[in-house]
Design a protein around this nucleic acid. Structure first.
Length: 716
DNA sequence: CGTGGGCGGATTTTT
DNA sequence: TCCGCCCACG
């Protein structure tokens, strides 16, 4: 068979990976080196050359977007419908398994999925039930703890408290949370993975079935896998498996949420004879950008090693701009965007990246002022909006009466006279009898005062009635009916201002989302249940006109996987990026460096790094120094735009730059040197004459107040 | 039951 | 500075 179409368009390294023998393979794929291409072609290779049946292939990604892209490209290349392949996210695939094997998973068929917001609510409820103080036991921290345990594959019974009472309490809360979820038949994101793992681990015949079926497992972004994902994969592959995994240790930026970059090495140990491929030729960026990125990442330890190169031009130098403050920084960015537009560039080709979301505001204001359209990525997504979740809660309750979270959410929304007191009775009843709130509500009617009983009864029968009335309706008609009959529309109409209108628009949008929803072919679920799962698992891109010609704004994290002709990395100051909280520990500092590497390698033609010497942060002015990452870039690749003479010049961190000291030239923001504490930046003055004190933020020692007359500072 | 003011906290994010 | 959350009041 002629397979040239699978290999012709590939470079040598890519070709070797695609056509690798059937054995475990690890592809180290640098940024912009065509890793998705390799994955897609490998799938085609397996089917067309190795004769593997499409049903035998499982391809896993992290995001729905990546899964969709993979699916699209496989279809385009193979010219067959991709429905017979299992392509999906870890969570999506785990969910699919649990739906098929809900009995083995000890679930009811109508179990529902929790998003993290729902999860917080349940935790708060559990804390209340345990009579714990929320200031001592912070729900968000508990949530973090529970998810971290699940990500590691640990159930409460597996965790040792080591005699630590705090830990013991956490474990107790975890257990109580588990019980609450099981009672309500709801499953959080981490639980999807853990339970999918457990049903395989505990059912040898089931595992054997899937091992036999999915002989070919492919994984994208392997460096982002956490422990349970890795365990799930290795269990499926088995000792004789031949997973094909693609990843880049230099782009591992999710350690903080459980990703284990060590899984790359673990993989090589667990699958002896793993073939290793390196994709180092980059098709995205100029030579200069790649050299800068390579130099930066070379400062990290323990890398698997990889150097990006391009056959293309060196291109322009990396531009560094030292702004006076954050407004100046924004102005600079805007001027450069104007230049780009004037030369015929599209706005959508420009990305402004920042470390944390809070930084976007100043930039947005400036863009607004300059009348440059922009789009901010990240933020509330469609299915996460409160009004959408309200409507979904009604639908979920119709589908699963045990879903306590949904019950609590809408039992009194819009208000229908079911107050805290009534609910307390119901909750107590539920707890005493170990039933759902729904069941408890029905059972506690007799104990309630007449008025409350009436209201509660009305609610129960409304749900029953809605279900009966919509039974034979199409999905979107169902949704429409519920939105109306629940009183939500009326309720939001009363809300003043544009806010209420926007909510009603969103509810209308939900109806059309339901209309446009297509059921997966082999789904075992009813259209409604399928839609509900879809709403949680694929909560939808932030609404926005993706195709308008907008400047793209996002955090460095969300830029991963994307590329832009022009990239601005803003806020390149120590303390901001690398973030203050990551500076102390080597491992987290190195993760910040990888994040910087990810940011830089997004740029195709022009890369700008900007920082502000003075920045208003949380309402206070701070004086920062250029990010150490700028100092790690080779000077010959940089072009310093409009260097400022009067203020600091800390561009090349670590470079000795001795000038004649000018003791009188000190002011806020000046760079100074102390005989013992080293270099720093002046933050503040206090008093005068012999009592004058000066506050200096030293690079190594942190912030200190010094007596000006003794400090013997020299201006650098 | 709904709202306004006071208070504390303020990476990064997907599912 | 600003946002979100909690509690106290109408």
């Amino acid at each position: 068979m002629d397979v040239s179409h699978l290999l012709d368009s590939l470079n040598d390294a890519q070709r070797q990976a695609v056509a690798a023998p059937l054995a475990p393979a690890l592809v180290l794929a640098g940024a912009g080196s065509g890793k998705t291409r390799v994955l897609v072609h490998r799938i085609a290779w397996l089917i067309q050359v190795e004769g593997v049946s499409p049903q035998g292939i499982l391809s896993v990604t992290f995001t729905n977007k990546a899964a969709a892209e993979m699916r699209g490209r496989v279809e385009a290349l193979l010219r067959i419908p991709s429905a017979s392949l299992w392509i999906g996210t870890f969570h999506g695939l785990a969910h699919r398994l649990l739906r098929m094997h809900w009995r083995e998973a000890a679930l009811t068929q109508t179990f529902q999925i929790l998003d993290s917001d729902d999860q917080t609510r349940i935790i708060k409820k559990v804390l209340k039930a345990l009579d714990l103080d929320e200031t001592r036991w912070v729900p968000r921290e508990i949530q973090w703890f529970i998810n971290a345990q699940k990500d590691e594959g640990l159930r409460p019974k597996h965790i040792k408290d080591d005699g630590d009472p705090t830990r013991r309490q956490l474990i107790k809360i975890y257990q109580a949370y588990e019980d609450a979820c099981q009672r309500a038949q709801v499953v959080d994101f981490a639980e999807l993975l853990l339970r999918a793992f457990e049903i395989w681990r505990d059912n040898p015949s089931l595992l054997a079935h899937y091992r036999n079926r999915f002989r070919h497992v492919l994984v994208d972004e392997f460096q982002d896998t956490n422990t349970i994902q890795y365990k799930w994969l290795s269990l499926l592959a088995g000792p004789d498996g031949m997973p094909f995994v693609v990843g880049d240790d230099d782009q591992s930026i999710y350690r903080w949420r459980g990703a284990r970059v060590e899984n790359l090495n673990q993989f090589r140990r667990d699958f002896p004879g793993t073939q290793l491929f390196r994709l180092e030729q980059n098709y995205r960026s100029t030579g200069t950008i790649l050299k800068a990125a390579n130099a930066l990442i070379a400062n990290n330890s323990g890398r698997m090693g990889k150097t990006l190169w391009t056959s293309g031009e060196d291109g322009e130098k990396v531009r560094i701009y030292a702004a006076f403050n954050e407004r100046d920084e924004a102005d600079f960015v805007i001027n450069r965007i104007r230049d780009w537009s004037q030369r015929g560039g599209a706005r959508r080709e420009v990305a402004i990246l920042y470390r944390s979301n809070a930084q976007s505001r100043v930039l947005e204001e400036a863009l607004l002022n300059a009348r440059i359209p922009y789009r901010v990525y990240g933020g509330l997504r469609f299915f996460e909006r409160a009004e959408i979740k309200d409507a979904l809660a009604y639908l979920r309750l119709m589908s699963s009466r045990t879903d306590d979270t949904s019950f609590e959410r809408v039992v009194n929304l819009p208000t229908r006279g079911i107050g805290a007191k009534t609910l307390d009775t119901v909750r107590a009843h539920a707890r005493a009898n170990g039933t759902s709130l729904w069941a408890a509500a029905g059972a506690s009617i007799r104990e309630l005062p007449q008025k409350a009983a009436q209201s509660l009864n009305a609610f129960l029968s409304m749900i029953e009635k809605m279900q009966a009335e919509t039974q034979s309706l199409e999905l979107h008609e169902k949704v429409d009916h519920v939105v109306q009959a629940s009183g939500l529309i009326e309720h939001f109409k009363k809300e003043k201002g544009e806010r209420g209108e926007a909510r009603i628009d969103n509810l209308a949008e939900l109806v059309s989302a339901a209309r446009g929803f297509t059921l997966e072919a082999d789904s075992e679920l009813s259209p409604l249940d399928s839609f509900l799962a879809h709403a949680v698992l694929e909560s939808g891109e932030a609404q926005g006109d993706a195709w308008d010609d907008c400047v793209q704004m996002m955090t460095l994290h969300s830029a991963k996987g994307l590329e832009f002709p022009v990239v601005f990395m803003t806020g390149m100051e120590d303390g901001l990026f690398p973030h203050q909280r990551s500076i102390g520990e080597l491992a987290s500092l190195e993760e910040e460096r990888r994040l910087c590497y990810v940011g830089a390698t997004r740029a195709m033609r022009q890369l700008y790094l900007t920082y502000a010497e003075q920045r208003r942060l949380h309402g206070v002015d701070t004086f920062g120094q250029a990010s150490r990452f700028i100092g790690e870039l080779p000077a010959e690749l940089l072009d310093e735009v409009r260097p400022r003479v009067q203020v600091s010049r800390p561009v090349y961190v670590g470079r000795k730059n001795l000038e004649e000291p000018t003791p009188t030239g000190m002011r806020m923001g000046s760079r100074v040197r102390h005989g013992k504490f080293g270099d720093g930046v002046v933050l503040n003055f206090e008093g005068n004459g012999p009592h004058a004190r000066i506050q200096v933020n030293f690079e190594r020692q942190g912030t200190k107040w010094l007596m000006l007359s003794y400090a013997n500072l020299e201006v650098v």
